[in-house]
Design a protein around this nucleic acid. Structure first.
Ligand SMILES: [Mn+2]
Ligand SMILES: [Mn+2]
Ligand SMILES: [Zn+2]
Ligand SMILES: [Zn+2]
Lengths: 154, 154
DNA sequence: ACCAAAAATGCAACATAGTTGCAATTATTT
DNA sequence: AAATAATTGCAACTATGTTGCATTTTTGGT
């Protein structure tokens, strides 16, 4: 019989190792706090905001509020994560090769942020009449409405 | 000879009248503070954030910080204005028939927010593989990079 | 494994955005 | 013009985000 806790701790172990490799590659020190933040983001199914990250963290690692901001800022600079600001709130998600920039859907009822299928940069760029003199560096698309759960739970 | 100040005060007068008509139509009380906020937004060439609105206001009308939030919130509810949240900051612009929802460009250097040509809702909606069970209510597109001024001023 | 240097964290203090309850003021209605 | 209804100002509060500096942890060399 396969024990749930066993599989779980095994996955955690793999994640820890991946976290270390990521930081190795980025050339930054491997601290307890950074590993913890990275693990939470890699476990997450959707982008997380600061308060979600904080909640997930405080049950495991002792970590200061300021430290989380500094870690997220560093990770972003190094291209390890990217942030999405939807309706004024910053969310964070892993930025890997397999996970390119994509639009997001924000449920107006439950607040959940979901990832949508990616649009290629050129696809998106083609849409905007920027024959103008803007040099586009980033395109952020946030869609809002009701998620399937909230729509059916009237 | 045409006097600058004369044309200016004439335009101000027209704006005041328009503001009153707008609030009449919306069925809300016509207060000094609301007229002031509406005039600032109708004068603006680009969407304004709270601090810009506050700065423009304090030279003319005495108005409390909280009141501005309440007015903007009311105007938004009544469809008089719409807000754009680009990189975590809320901006406000007039929402008229002649000015439909459109993408915005945020200069990463000078921070200025510019309005881009509108995309029709169906055009935009067509882009996203939302054969999924989301009901789309709003599509927000924020593009960032360098504006012409900042790009040429290297 | 140990030590010094470098880097990261924790803490306190601060800044700004945004919200709420309630009393004072202003707008609307009669 | 007075009564009523609505709006505003004020104080207090929450949440997010930033900075300087002392303490702790990590790193790299021995
Ligand atoms: Mn995503
Ligand atoms: Mn605009
Ligand atoms: Zn929902
Ligand atoms: Zn610029």
């Amino acid at each position: 019989m396969l024990h749930f806790w066993y599989v779980h701790s095994m996955l955690d172990h793999i994640r820890d190792k991946n976290a270390l490799i990521t930081m190795q590659k980025a050339g930054i020190s491997k601290t307890q706090q950074r590993i913890a933040v990275l693990n939470i983001l890699s476990k997450a199914a959707t982008p997380l905001n600061i308060s979600s990250i904080r909640q997930s963290l405080q049950s495991k690692t002792r970590i200061n509020r300021v430290t989380i901001y500094r870690i997220l800022s560093l990770f972003k600079m190094r291209g390890i994560i990217r942030d999405i600001t939807s309706s004024g709130i910053s969310y964070y998600e892993l930025a890997t090769r397999e996970n390119p920039v994509h639009p997001h859907f924000n449920c107006l009822n439950c607040g959940k942020l979901s990832c949508l299928e990616p649009l290629t940069f050129s696809q998106a760029k083609h849409l905007f009449n920027t024959d103008e003199n803007f040099s586009i560096e980033h395109i952020e698309i946030n869609i809002s409405g009701l998620c399937s759960y909230c729509r059916n739970a009237t």
